[in-house]
Nucleic acid binder design. Structure first.
Lengths: 342, 342
DNA sequence: TCCCGTTACTAACACGCGTTAGTAATAATA
DNA sequence: TATTATTACTAACGCGTGTTAGTAACGGGA
């Protein structure tokens, strides 16, 4: 009962060797010239005493925490509605555990001043993955300049900070390409967010790229802004439907916003996809249960996490990434809110 | 550039005091008899050097990690569809940060043998919150008997391990009570999962309790099993509707399963709530956007996390909880899948 | 025989902090 | 004045580990 934890000294004593030897054996240090017989003695002693090295002691001595931080810059309500953060998290965690790293989670409210650099300055983590709306945070720039391993989920190209992001431009273009290939020429768009969000800009660019490639003039009246909510999608779609010549297909750059769009369409007495086709973006788990099931662009949330985790750990271990940034590709998921073409 | 991290020795040197004094001042140790003048010198030095205590050193010296672990026993796919884990997580994290604790996340696949006790034995965390299907895990029992602070999200009453859970029995009873008070006497139920899940048992008990209180005989033909998926809800509801005297109201013990139930009802040409009323359970974020918006029982996911975090930290700090277990109450959320009764 | 390289270890320092036990100086009491 | 209590500190140990520098034994080649 009163037993303290077993330490490497206990193992050393039982095995009849020094603590150094125990450390060499258990950490498998190369060129340490420990013969097999001694190794086995150490292993046996460790097993018998159920020895587990103390993480704090190890961190202190090595200077490494073998832990990465996931920092989420977002208000509590926003987190609630983020269907993907969990998938990203799982991806990060799986990448981390593959390398023997742990994952520390931290949410930051915007007004909070303590920030996340505490995680680094107090040596809780060896590096951090930053997610959420990225303003030009001086705290972030400073950490990066100090050489702290950081990976952004999302891009801040001007800063040179490594990032992992989804190729939303191409994804959006793919969606609109599909609508064009179905013969549509009046294609509306509802953005996922206000245009000061870079994710909204990217998705709009993809939309415009597709139109230009298809020689279809961009009509600004066909582009409406959403703001994450179904309600905003409802309003936007009503506006689109009340145009003198309404669109025959709409790219809604967020599955959640598309919920409201669906409501507006049904309320107008129109049918999806017979009267109007809709493609969403994100592929949230619920999308396949929309009425009709939503065709959409799948965001590779799990892969975002996995790649971010892998690259961050690579930065921590070797001080270099495989590339200055990663853009992961999306996938067009066709369900019933679009007609089958070709 | 070549600067090492600043340590408490540096602060001591600059302030002209000993490292002990620095520690006393910065940790605000009572009865240490440090006059205000000295305190200010220390604070000034710490600020000037931008001193942040090294977490590893602190953990090693104190034996406390000031970190709690959230362990999720679940396969990767299951996690994806868990709309609440994130909310629970936020609750835990907010409770933790209030006490200056951090949160470490770990997913465990069932087949993995290394398990979660490593978190404890290696002193990464001071206690853990365990979530997911709880079988009679010997690893868990052993940790609990060793006095490791553990809180379960969900109940294992026979083990005596502290828990935080939702009062699903009462929540389900509330839902069915409401249907009874609307005048229904043939009330169906579709479970959220197979009956070997304790959560399914609890919800069914609540259903039966309400019927008994309302003097309505329990008809087993009106009870069908779901298994987390919309597809299972679709099948179950079709079976209910094909009965010679189908139910006029159904309690579906999972909002996700209710999606399929809705589809079956619509396909049968029936209207909700005019022809058949439906109450769900969980109140997932999407529930308010069902067609019609789903009346349901709200699961206090955020509070589950918050209470679990608070209680775990209380156990860590004082070795006792406010109660051996906590049952959090649900809330009836009335939307449009039920008629308004006075 | 002497020298030297290899093998098989270990002593001892360092990591940064919390904390106990103790000391010297001052103030309060008898 | 002599004793005691209080104030304002500090020296030193311990937490458990990683790691460098060094040592003793031993075998082989000149």
């Amino acid at each position: 009962m009163g037993n303290k934890r077993t330490t490497s000294s206990d193992v050393a004593k039982l095995a009849g060797v020094s603590r150094t030897t125990v450390s060499f054996v258990l950490n498998n240090i190369p060129d340490s010239n420990i013969p097999e017989a001694t190794r086995q003695k150490v292993f046996a002693a460790a097993k018998q005493l159920n020895y587990h090295p103390n993480a704090s002691g190890r961190k202190l001595a090595s200077g490494k925490s073998k832990t990465i931080g996931l920092v989420r810059l977002q208000s509590t309500e926003q987190v609630f509605n983020d269907a993907f953060l969990l998938q990203v998290l799982v991806g990060i965690e799986q990448a981390a555990s593959k390398w023997g790293f742990h994952v520390l989670l931290k949410h930051i409210d915007h007004d909070k001043s303590d920030g996340y650099s505490q995680l680094i300055t107090e040596n809780h983590v060896d590096g951090i993955i930053l997610s959420g709306p990225l303003q030009n945070d001086p705290e972030l720039i400073k950490l990066h300049e100090e050489g702290v391993p950081i990976i952004l989920l999302g891009q801040m190209l001007d800063t040179g900070i490594p990032y992992v992001d989804v190729n939303a431009v191409l994804g959006s273009k793919t969606a609109v390409d599909y609508l064009i290939s179905s013969g549509h020429t009046r294609i509306g768009m509802i953005t996922n967010a206000k245009m000061d969000y870079s994710s909204a800009q990217q998705r709009k660019i993809g939309y415009i790229n597709a139109l230009e490639k298809g020689k279809i003039p961009v009509d600004e009246r066909l582009i409406k802004e959403g703001d994450f909510t179904p309600a905003s999608g409802y309003v936007a779609m009503k506006e689109l439907l009340s145009l003198s010549t309404p669109p025959t297909a709409v790219f809604v750059a967020s599955d959640v916003v598309a919920i409201g769009a669906f409501q507006a369409i049904k309320q107008a007495g129109l049918q999806i996809p017979q009267d109007i086709e809709v493609i969403g973006f994100d592929d949230i788990p619920m999308a396949e249960y929309y009425d009709p099931p939503l065709s959409t662009i799948r965001l590779p949330a799990y892969d975002l996490g996995r790649v971010a985790g892998d690259q961050l750990i690579k930065m921590i271990l070797t001080n270099e990434m495989d590339a200055p940034g990663f853009l992961l590709e999306t996938e067009l998921v066709l369900r019933e809110s679009t007609k089958h073409n070709d």
